[in-house]
Simulated assay, not measured.
Amino acid sequence: MTLPASAPAIVVEGVRKSFKDTDVLRGVDFDVPRGSIFALLGSNGAGKTTLVRILSTLLAADGGKAAVEGFDVGAQPHKVREVISLTGQFAAVDEILTGRENLVLVARLRHLEHPQQAADQLLGRFGLTDAGARKVATYSGGMRRRLDIAMSLVGEPRVIFLDEPTTGLDPEARLEVWDIVRNLASQGTTVLLTTQYLDEAENLADRIAILHGVRIIANGTLAELKRLLPPATVEYVEKQPSLEDIFLTLVGHGESVKDRS
């Protein structure tokens, strides 16, 4: 299916999900423009991973509709899986294999015609060529995450879900992942990123949605979200609201910008 260039890559309408008597998502709505980075921001337990699992066909919603690249997540799961990839919170790499062997394995599972060539191209793209023949057990955390994301790009998916991709990484490795995400979007891949790190959303995302209390309570560009708070007051130094100010105020755990001046 070929969508018009203006059509969103991801559309979510009224999605609901409960586990027994506990509501996790209740009427979630948003869409993600193609080739953009969309950050889903929320605290632990806010439902971010649940929503990603629904969009990646790993979990059925209780209600509402969702589509990825025009394919209905509930009615056309096989079509959705053909155009997406998912990277979870922890690197899903085989430590016994080399980096190259991990990539070749995924390429073969995806029935690529030239798995060895695909592996070599991705090793080069992610700066892992020199480490390709080493067992992954010898890799640093940042290298493992780079390999994990490289594995998720085998077959050139149009949409990639990154579920808290920098959890547990040191600052240098986090910056490496940020560069990877930016490069993905610059090459036309749509990225939906979940994170609890405010600076991550602030630095990477074209649009940010805040998930809190089973709903999306704000959705917009960083500039649009900043306008939700009172204007900065000028005493000695003007203080513009940060994404942290916005997030804490909207979820009810923070002071206003004026109070903190």
Rank of each mutant, 00 (worst) to 15 (best):
D179W: 11
G42F: 13
D21S: 15
E224K: 07
R108I: 05
K239V: 08
A201G: 04
V104Y: 00
R81I: 08
G168N: 06
D62G: 15
D29Q: 10
G27W: 03
S242W: 01
R227Y: 05
A223Q: 03
V73F: 09
T195I: 08
E176R: 15
L112Y: 09
V93M: 04
Y197T: 00
A119Q: 01
V73P: 06
S36D: 08
D148W: 01
P8F: 01
Q240I: 09
I246S: 07
I208F: 01
H212K: 11
T49G: 11
N44G: 08
N102W: 01
E156M: 07
T49M: 00
I180H: 07
L250M: 12
T22L: 13
I180W: 02
T221Q: 04
T50M: 06
N219T: 00
G132I: 04
L211N: 11
R134G: 10
G213Q: 10
H212R: 13
L25E: 02
E238N: 10
Q121H: 07
F38D: 03
T167W: 02
L128T: 03
V73A: 10
G155K: 03
G141R: 01
E244D: 15
T189R: 00
G168D: 00
F90Y: 02
F19H: 09
I37P: 07
L175E: 11
N219I: 07
A92G: 03
A67N: 13
E95H: 14
Q187K: 09
I84L: 10
I149L: 04
V106P: 00
K65Q: 14
H212Q: 12
G127T: 02
N219A: 09
L204Y: 07
S186T: 11
K258E: 15
D245I: 03
R100T: 01
I216L: 13
I246F: 04
L169E: 02
K20T: 15
L229D: 02
P33S: 13
R146Q: 08
L169W: 06
H78V: 15
T195F: 00
T129V: 09
N219Y: 06
S152P: 02
L243N: 09
A9C: 08
G132Q: 14
R34V: 00
S256P: 11
I210K: 04
